[in-house]
């Protein structure tokens, strides 16, 4: 196939227009969707450890209500029958209560890992699990930097259990059941942007009371769950060594290379094949 000058410019023109149109179309679609990521803000200075949020969560998701007692430095873990857990830590600033559950990352590793999009980041913000798609491969558990998804190992029809930020309630216009149950407003619900502003305001108004960091603002590329704490975050059970860029970005390079290898390698192999074949037939002729 030969390509003359006119055709060349024509092709370039078409490609250019497509690119430009494609870009503007993308821009309008993001503008038209006004849905913002929702999130939750946990203020450790306000939590009194009443476990009302845990009880409400258990009730809402048909799980056993907590029966164990909250003790200092006895780690209570989330599990396949417990989507959230309050923990009591001894820190340099005294005893601090903190709540653990799914962080609902902006760019979740679990959702990027999932080969059927069973783990799914909704446009409203919650990361949800969809049982009709899930194969149970547990790659989400391998990938999650916070070790959140839990698997029902003792079931013939196992589910992945984790906090879904009460997605069904949010869709009905209600707030998550834990935020509703919290008597101290330690846990509040809103858009992520509002919550970040609120968190910064609280730090600015009371710089002595908080460490100057909103955990979740940048960790793992940003999470929907935001935390304020009077003590450094590594003292209240968080892994502060986690990277600040998103986890799915770690596989980007590999995924991008796939298409090029899939196209270039067969061409290369075919080339080598024809070259060696020609050599062989020449040798045969010489014989």
């Amino acid at each position: 196939m030969s390509i003359d000058r006119r055709n060349f410019f024509k092709t370039i023109g078409i490609a250019g227009v497509t690119l430009a149109v494609g870009k503007s179309a993308g821009a309008t679609s993001t503008e038209s969707s006004k849905t913002e990521f929702r999130g939750m803000l946990f203020d450790a200075t306000r939590c009194a450890g009443c476990l009302e949020c845990e009880i409400a969560c258990a009730k809402a998701h048909n799980q056993p209500e907590p029966t164990d007692e909250l003790k200092v430095d006895v780690l209570r873990k989330t599990s396949e029958v417990k989507r959230c857990a309050i923990n009591y830590h001894t820190t340099s600033k005294g005893e601090v209560l903190v709540r653990n559950q799914c962080m609902h990352c902006n760019e979740p590793a679990c959702a990027a890992a999932c080969l059927t999009q069973a783990m799914y980041k909704t446009k409203e913000g919650p990361v949800i699990w969809r049982g009709n798609k899930c194969m149970g491969c547990r790659y989400c558990m391998v990938s999650c930097p916070f070790d959140v998804p839990k698997f029902e190992y003792f079931s013939a029809n196992p589910k992945i259990e984790k906090c879904d930020m009460c997605y069904d309630r949010i869709m009905k216009g209600q707030i998550p059941t834990c935020a509703e149950a919290c008597p101290a407003e330690a846990l509040i619900f809103g858009t992520r942007r509002e919550l970040l502003t609120e968190a910064r305001k609280r730090i600015a108004e009371n710089p002595e009371g908080y460490v100057d960091q909103v955990f979740g603002e940048t960790v793992a590329g940003g999470t929907a769950f935001l935390y304020l704490s009077p003590a450094p975050f590594n003292e209240i059970g968080f892994n502060t060594k986690l990277q600040n860029s998103s986890y799915p970005a770690l596989t980007k390079g590999f995924l991008y290379s796939v298409a090029s290898v899939d196209v270039l390698l067969p061409a290369l192999l075919l080339g080598i094949y024809s070259a060696t074949k020609k050599n062989q037939s020449k040798e045969e002729e010489n014989e």
Binding site: L115, T116, K133, C137, Y139
Partner: peptide, 28 residues
Amino acid sequence: IDLGRPWNVVNPIIGNNYGTSSVMFLVA
């Protein structure tokens, strides 16, 4: 044997859904 929900194993092939950002999807 290791898949918790093996009856859904055809999902990434039949398109319920295609998790194209997943390395596992590619490997599968």
